[in-house]
Amino acid sequence: MTETNPATRPPEYAAIRTDGLTRRFGSTVAVSDIDISIPRGTVYGFLGPNGAGKTTTIQMLTTLLPPSSGAGWVMGVPITNRDRVKSHIGYLPHESPVYESFTAREQLAYAADLRRMEAAAADERIETLLDRIDLIDAANDRIGTYSQGMRRKVGLVQALLHEPDVAFLDEPTNGLDPRASRTVMQMITEQVEAGMTVFLSSHILSVVEELADTVGVLYEGQLVAEDTPAELVTRTECTDGAGTLEEAFLDITTDYTTTANVR
């Protein structure tokens, strides 16, 4: 059977789909006419330099910011339906949303209560994830005493706590040491193997290269490239087989800038 083109699939087929998604701030176009279709149970790496529109795109997909035009769906639900979309997603923004006066256990119990998780199941999952992310010994300390990396861990656990269908993770390894980064990457892989879809934004391109099934490159608000990490590397000047996604990213954005300047 011939595989259907992702762009023509119905919205409910994909975990995330957009059709001409656009956001303007006055006369400034932050995100322009984005079309993506992300299969369920995959990792989508979302790359771009600072100011490219990555955060704006994520905020639209997580219902925090309405689009100026176009449409989007998460698990087949229009992003205009905020409550239903929120029931499907977990979100780790660039700055972990935690209360400094809470302990890690209190923060996660509060998050579980907001998600209306059953108390016993929530407690068990909290303990499992705290142990996995190596925070169990500090779980009763105030978050205000935590390092940046420890706060990041709490934010990640909070995003994954309710086992969402789709997790939006913005720089999940930011501030983590290599060992903790490896643990986070393993956790993401396990969640995806269990059926979760992950929308991953990171400036650490080695993380994206290892985890992502597909990579989209956003530049000046436009999706300028989209393919598997291996294919993106192959399409660039890195033809000796030793190229990296970082080199491919630099080539893609440089080529786009050069072409735009010529026009």
Rank of each mutant, 00 (worst) to 15 (best):
G90Y: 05
T183C: 02
P6Q: 05
D251E: 12
V217W: 05
G241E: 12
D19A: 13
R179E: 14
L108F: 04
H203N: 11
Q107S: 07
L161G: 02
L200S: 07
D137K: 14
Y13A: 15
I252L: 13
A71W: 05
T258M: 06
R179S: 11
I38C: 06
F168T: 05
I133E: 01
V154A: 08
F46G: 11
S27K: 13
S181M: 09
Y44P: 02
D35V: 08
T42I: 03
L61C: 12
T257A: 14
G70H: 02
L130N: 02
V29H: 01
L176S: 06
R132K: 11
T236K: 04
L245P: 09
S32Y: 08
T128Q: 13
V198H: 04
V233N: 01
D170V: 09
P10G: 07
R24H: 14
V43T: 10
S32M: 04
E100W: 07
V31Y: 06
L130Q: 01
S37P: 01
A104Y: 05
M117V: 11
L161I: 09
R263F: 06
Y13T: 14
G20V: 10
L129K: 00
T2K: 12
I38D: 02
G53K: 01
E3L: 06
T214H: 03
A109I: 00
S32N: 14
D113E: 15
E127P: 01
R40W: 00
V217H: 01
I38W: 03
R82A: 15
G26D: 09
V85Q: 03
F102W: 08
A52R: 08
E127T: 14
T63I: 09
G76A: 11
T189S: 15
I34Q: 04
R24G: 02
T183N: 05
V224Y: 01
T80A: 13
L176Q: 04
T197K: 10
P172V: 07
D35Q: 10
A121N: 09
R17D: 04
T128N: 04
T80R: 11
N140P: 00
Y99H: 13
G41H: 08
Y13Q: 14
K153F: 05
K54W: 12
R179V: 14
V154Q: 04
L108S: 09
L161C: 10
